[in-house]
Design a protein around this nucleic acid. Structure first.
Length: 566
RNA sequence: CGGGACGUGGCGCAGUUUGGCAAGCGCGCUUGCUUUGGGAGCAAGAGGUCGUGAGUUCAAAUCUCACCGUCCCGACCA
């Protein structure tokens, strides 16, 4: 490709709107342009990168035996009502009507459509297992898009769906798909970890995520460097490994705390640390309202409450309703002589002593409150998020909190969709059974950003060769070497090497900067050195090594280098 | 959804507090000359409903109100 004819849109300065390095570089290198919040156009350079990633994904999926198809982006509401997700999915599901006032959505995912399709086509166990996939635009009306393509509203995703005759076959398919994903991500030169995830709104049983550790990530993870324990924040266990405090039990006392409502205010007022306080928060569940107690420095994990209480709905009771329900002002709630609701108590509280809590009267707190002596928990368990420097639940080393970006998500959906949409088949005995489904997604359009997060320097992007939009860029720095450059360009093209010939009428320095910013793995410089020595210089983006070759050798040398390059 | 910041040629910004000449600067773009190995110099140009609407005023980028859009933190989230 001749650069003079190619839509290159690099800028000299970083656009103001970006925060993450990958987002900054993608904009500066002109890979993408924003059209609206969370909606981007991919420019030719950016699209070449997407295409590279897509073809890696495609090859590995096809290799596994999955079949590519294309499902509609716009989907009738009817199917979503049938699966129940019309109401369950929430505001992220964008809804609209066509001219006939029929309701539609833009697909945030495609379980309904594919299940409906398979339901009609699959009638016998002989057709199973079946794995179908597509590379498609998705739309999720995110409350807050961020990081450019890292969390976009419109994005490109590879989603695969497997259909099996029983659980065992599903588990097998799932494990094999995991191996396929490992191949895909290593071909993309990505560093990643696999962690347990919560199936969440997708439903189903087992679920794991491929996560790239990165400071620009939005998922928080708990990591123990010593034993290798790694889990998503919301899944991470907080086994209390602390010893029970041996402090002497002091006498409980009321203190006057006018207008002191928050933990922060309380700590300031009494000059104590939040770990010495207990927060009492009221929640509603489908069974009964409860009072949840955690230490002042801890955060409640509502998912864990659900598990512990075996309920599906847990909602915090708003501050202004607290007084209505209990007669006590929010900010002064406490467990002592509180008999309105059951007390759900975090493990950490049982181990501590002499806490400060609300006094269940306006402007009153209690000091030296002790579990068991002063109040009886109804249920005790792990209901909080871990904190940095907590002890690892397995080896007692200190844990760290890391950030990560979700690359892919695997689910064993089970029968959730097949059941609701009525996707059955006949088994060997001629008996009707429900299909076991799996679902496997990769956030394709997010991957360029993640790869950049892991592969960049001060000058810009450093694409791994398999992802780079071009393998080689040619710069001639002299009028006299222009013809040679053109010859080399044609030779490389003929050899099938993707080459960008920077024939723009710009100073050499500008071209070098652009090519480095864009991240092309190799530069061929044909200039003064050529005039003196008849040699072409080869500079590698990643290492800045310089090699010299003759025009005759250049194709072979490039082939070798590209083969060896990362 | 809560908190914060912002919206001025393609990009980055100044000007807004205290209303007042003709709306500026750098980059980029066009033309010419000189330069030419890591974002050149000089000269001459093109390019703007100052986010939108209403209002106050002799006069609005600047003040008031409403709306729209964008980014960041948090909450939320396959």
């Amino acid at each position: 490709m001749r650069a003079s004819r190619y839509l290159i849109s690099t800028t000299r300065e970083f656009p103001r709107e970006a925060e993450y390095i990958s987002h900054k570089l993608m904009l500066k290198a002109g890979l993408i342009k924003k059209v609206a919040a969370g909606i981007y156009s991919f420019f030719p350079l950016g699209y070449r990168v997407l295409a590279k990633i897509s073809s890696i994904v495609r090859e590995e999926m096809d290799n596994f035996g999955a079949q590519e198809l294309l499902l509609p982006f716009m989907q009738p509401a009817r199917l979503w009502k049938k699966s129940g997700r019309w109401t369950e999915y929430g505001d992220e599901l964008i809804r609209f009507q066509d001219r006939k006032r029929t309701e539609f959505i833009l697909g945030p995912t495609h379980e309904e459509i594919i299940t409906e399709l398979v339901k009609k086509e699959i009638t016998s166990y002989k057709q199973l297992p079946l794995t179908l996939y597509q590379i498609q635009i998705k739309f999720r009306d995110e409350q807050r898009p961020r990081g450019g393509v890292i969390r976009a509203r419109e994005f490109l995703m590879k989603d695969a769906y497997s259909f099996c005759q029983d659980k065992r076959a599903l588990e097998l398919n799932y494990e094999e798909m995991k191996k396929v994903y490992e191949k895909i991500f290593s071909r993309c030169s990505l560093n990643y970890k696999i962690v347990e995830a919560s199936p969440g709104a997708m439903g189903g049983e087992k679920s794991e995520e491929f996560i790239a550790l990165s400071d620009s990530g939005e998922d928080r993870l708990v990591e123990c460097k010593k034993c290798g324990y790694l889990a998503k924040m919301e899944m991470a266990e907080s086994l209390e490994t602390e010893e029970r405090k041996k402090e002497e039990l002091k006498e409980i006392k009321e203190v006057y705390t006018p207008q002191v409502r928050s933990i922060k205010e309380l700590c300031k007022f009494l000059n104590i640390s939040p770990a010495k306080t207990i927060k009492t928060i009221l929640y509603e569940t489908e069974k009964e309202p409860v009072a949840v107690l955690v230490r002042g420095d801890h955060q409640i994990n509502e998912e864990k409450i659900k598990k512990l209480m075996k309920v599906t709905r847990v909602n915090i009771i708003e501050e202004n309703l607290v007084k209505e329900m209990t007669g006590i002002e929010a900010g002064f709630l406490g467990p002592v002589e509180f008999d309105k609701f059951k007390l759900i108590v975090d493990n950490a509280i049982i181990r501590g002593r002499n806490f400060v809590t609300g006094g269940n009267k306006k402007d009153i707190h209690l000091v030296n409150v002790n579990p068991e002596r002063d109040f009886k928990p109804d249920i005790v368990g792990d209901i909080r998020f871990p904190l940095a420097n907590d002890k690892c639940p397995f080896c007692k080393n200190r844990i760290e909190i890391k950030r990560g970006i979700e690359l892919a998500h695997l689910f064993q959906l089970g029968q959730r969709y097949s059941q609701r949409l009525g996707a059955f088949f006949l088994n060997k005995k001629g008996k009707k059974e429900t299909l076991e489904m799996g679902c496997y997604g990769i956030g394709i359009s997010r991957l360029p950003a993640v790869i950049i997060e892991q592969n960049h320097d001060k000058k810009g992007i450093i694409w791994p060769k398999k992802i780079a939009p071009f393998q080689v860029a040619i710069v001639s720095t002299n009028q006299e070497t222009l013809k040679i450059a053109e010859r080399v360009y044609h030779k490389l093209n003929e050899a099938g090497i993707e080459t960008l010939w920077d024939d723009r009428e710009l100073r050499a320095g500008v071209k070098f900067q652009d090519i480095d910013l864009i991240g092309i793995p190799f530069k061929l410089i044909i200039g003064n050195t050529f005039l003196k020595e008849r040699k072409i210089e080869i500079k590698e983006r990643r290492e800045e090594r310089i090699k010299k070759v003759s025009v005759e050798e250049v194709v072979q040398k490039m082939e070798e280098l590209i083969k060896d390059a990362k």
